[in-house]
Design a protein around this nucleic acid. Structure first.
Lengths: 145, 145
DNA sequence: ATACATGCAAACATTTTGCTTTGGC
DNA sequence: GCCAAAGCAAAATGTTTGCATGTAT
């Protein structure tokens, strides 16, 4: 947690208040923990974190996360309906996807992916091997809009 | 299913055979269904598909998918440990991630994301609104290698 | 005082495993 | 015939909801 964390916490709490959320212990601790983490956290991570363990119920944290996401305070990573998707892998073929945030429709994009060049660079910098990537675009499809 | 599907099916079956998988009904139907689908499918999608319904057990299809993925025949989309990740969303800040395929470590990447420019283009072409994207890099981290 | 938030328990959905039987090679 | 794969059932995991109680405003 850098020295700017208190500022961020105050800012985040204010965002919540502006949107009508109440300032509760659970809210503050969840925000503080997320702000202090260098990486995204799962519900389990949060519930088991030192700050929250034995302090807040899982359901509380869960509902809080939902509210915070709805209000744009935080971002949820990954495909949004918690199940794994599979697709054929053809040699030399890489696909990116366009997904409707409302109805979940997934379509394949036929674009020249601008990311491939980055892979070498990232591999060199990070020391990771066998690099590949996933790129997904989310938005509201015409039918849902 | 285009006219090239039989070719693809034969190719895919051959890939499997080369890797020591047996040519079973389930294998063929799973491959055929995935090849014929314009979008990625879930386990449930497959099990309920016309070709597989009442033909193959869920566990069979599940294990088949695992084997096929391990053998590089197909690709699995999404964060790989079936749970949601949350992170703070700061105004104007967008993050991409680097994830270890072995141990699941997630780190934030500090790169200039080359994808933002594409969003407008995709939005225009597809009619999707409120576009945003997620970009994740996967690889084997130095510790796991 | 009143709504919103919490805690606990239970329901759900999906994935994963154990074990026996079947069938490809 | 042997071993991988299938089938069935049950366990495990993570998410979500119902309802009574507590608490911020």
């Amino acid at each position: 947690m850098g020295k700017r964390s208190p500022d961020r916490l105050n800012w985040a709490v204010q965002q919540c208040r502006d949107r009508g959320l109440r300032r509760t212990k659970a809210l503050e601790e969840v925000l503080r923990t997320l702000i202090g983490s260098p990486r995204p956290l799962t519900l389990a991570d949060l519930v088991e974190s030192k700050a929250l363990r034995n302090q807040c119920d899982k359901a509380t944290v869960y509902r809080l996360l939902m509210r915070l996401e709805e209000n744009g305070i935080l971002r949820r990573l990954g495909l949004h309906d918690r199940c794994a998707y599979f697709t054929m892998k053809y040699p030399g073929k890489h696909s990116d996807y366009l997904i409707c945030s409302e109805c979940g429709t997934i379509e394949e994009l036929d674009i020249a992916c601008p990311v491939e060049a980055l892979e070498k660079e990232i591999s060199a910098k990070s020391g990771y091997r066998k690099l590949y990537h996933e790129l997904e675009f989310f938005g509201v499809c015409p039918d849902c809009a």
